[in-house]
Amino acid sequence: MQVIDLLHTATRELAEAGVDGGDLDGQLLLGACLNKSRTELFLAADMEVPEEARRVFLRYLERRKRREPIAYILGEREFWSLPFIVNPSVLIPRPETEFLVEQVLAACRPRRGLHDGWILDLCCGSGAIAVVLALELQRDIVAVDISCDALAVAQQNCRRHKVDDRVALVKADLLTAFAAERRFSLLVSNPPYVSRRQLRQGLDPEVAGYEPLLALDGGEDGLDIIARIKEMLPVIMRPGGEVFIEIGAEQGPALLRMFAPSAGAAELVKTVEILKDYAGRDRVLHLLLSGYGR
């Protein structure tokens, strides 16, 4: 069969399976089988596809028809223009998290004070945030996750991008592994923040059927993990440190209340703001911590 025949097959069968964007999916899957870009595929439309590549493509196509994400099928996802290994042990990196990283980098570069303490990537998953921060800031990073399987993926990505000497991977339930020494000046996190209501109502099949629940479930209102992080901040964060946490698009008002002086955060937080993404949705909780009364 020719390239064009297989692409038409993918578009038709994915549409019949209820998968949106089947033409693009087919191009990505066949391109991976032939080691060709989408442009190269179009230029090679009349090329006969080798039998082994055809068989692999058809296996990939069957998996995609069952709504398995392409990133898991191919074992890779681009983030920050870099390739990252992914599997069902970790969330697939998303553009929303690139926005989180952008905000962190914008804050770090002009502020000398953040160079005085350690940097923490909490709930690190695939290690994408830790790797990018290590590369962009040329700093050592401590990356924490509760899942051994996720940390194994993060380790592969650190080695792939040659930052394994600068990223220390720690298995822990949030901040429980750290002594009360206030060593961190910057905390970055993409924690579980999907509410139980959203989980009950149903997520997209690609998410609900394949991505790890442990990395999604944020409790009844989606804020349980962030509330736990709040309690630990004065224990491990340096006075005047900064916190950047990815959040859900409707969680901004609740988080402003959580970190308001009336909620007991007067001595903890100097300023709190919700940063909106490029679509105008709440996306990042940013905290500037106080001097803790000193």
Rank of each mutant, 00 (worst) to 15 (best):
P88A: 07
L7C: 10
R200V: 13
F42S: 11
H286L: 07
L61Q: 04
A254L: 14
R111W: 10
L122W: 02
I245P: 08
R294N: 13
R54Y: 04
D173I: 11
V235G: 03
L137C: 10
A134P: 02
E13D: 07
A180P: 13
A134E: 01
D204C: 09
A130W: 09
P95Q: 08
A215L: 05
H286R: 14
G113F: 07
D116Q: 12
D25A: 10
P95Y: 10
F259P: 04
V56P: 01
E136K: 09
S290F: 04
A15Q: 08
D149I: 06
L289H: 03
A260D: 15
L256D: 01
A32F: 11
V284Q: 05
D164A: 10
I146N: 02
V142A: 05
L203M: 14
L7V: 14
N35W: 03
A249Y: 15
R64I: 05
A150N: 01
I141H: 03
P83L: 05
D217C: 10
S185P: 03
K171F: 06
P69W: 08
G209I: 09
R160W: 01
G127A: 04
D46A: 13
L14G: 01
L58K: 04
L223H: 05
P253T: 15
E78S: 08
P88N: 07
L133H: 05
Q198P: 00
G75C: 14
Y193E: 06
E246N: 12
L169Y: 15
R12S: 15
D140K: 12
K276D: 02
I129F: 02
L120R: 02
G248Y: 09
L122D: 02
L82D: 00
L255R: 03
L289Q: 04
L288A: 07
E273M: 09
G202W: 09
L199F: 05
A215D: 01
V194C: 06
T39P: 00
